[in-house]
């Protein structure tokens, strides 16, 4: 596209019309704010932040938390894909090891011994959610994370699970378990 640049008239080159236009629009906003109370906060969200909380829209990328499945078991299987993909290296996973605790749901091999997210490093990009094969981590609606010390901002597995809530999702392992059981039954058709 070619923008047609017309030569400015003498009056326009004096710069005074622009000043007048600027004064008109700024004084209009000034009047509306001071005398009619029409600030952005009052018109758009009916108040200001600490008193009036913000309505978080669907699909908002807030803090990433771990979720449980519908039986209350940890969904994470400690595959460490999120740790690998995390651009600011905010996620730190400690795997259970050879003789560690087994997963608290059936048929899943393992779960992390410790799962830490440093919320000071997290950039809320959502890669962890995207890469997770288990749908175990989701970016949720929390946007106002504060703490009095840096240590407080490192969220451990327990805290992440309690904040994350429940999400049934695909129930991959449950289906696998049912399939395996069905295989053991050998439903042979007899006449």
């Amino acid at each position: 596209m070619i923008v047609d640049r017309k030569p400015l008239s003498f009056w326009e080159r004096m710069y005074l019309p622009s000043i007048w236009g600027g004064f008109k629009i700024t004084s209009k906003h000034f009047y509306n704010t001071v005398f009619r109370g029409k600030t952005g906060g009052n018109t758009l969200s009916k108040g200001y932040y600490p008193e009036t909380k913000w309505d978080v829209a669907e699909g908002y990328r807030g803090a990433p938390y771990l979720v449980k499945d519908q039986d209350g078991a940890t969904k994470c299987v400690s595959c460490q894909l999120c740790e690998f993909v995390c651009p600011p290296k905010a996620i730190k996973i400690t795997p259970p090891g050879a003789d560690g605790q087994t997963a608290d749901r059936k048929n899943a091999e393992k779960m992390p011994r410790e799962f830490e997210i440093n919320m000071l490093r997290c950039i809320f990009c959502g890669f962890c959610q995207e890469v997770c094969p288990e749908e175990a981590i989701f970016l949720q609606k929390d946007y106002s994370l504060t703490g009095l010390a840096r240590g407080e901002m490192i969220f451990n597995k327990e805290k992440l699970l309690s904040l994350g809530g429940t999400s049934g999702g695909i129930q991959k392992w449950k289906h696998k378990l049912e399939e395996a059981k069905e295989q053991e039954v050998f439903p042979v058709e007899t006449k």
Partner: peptide
Amino acid sequence: KISAFIQDRQ
């Protein structure tokens, strides 16, 4: 303050 009023802020 004046900048805020011109920009619809408080």
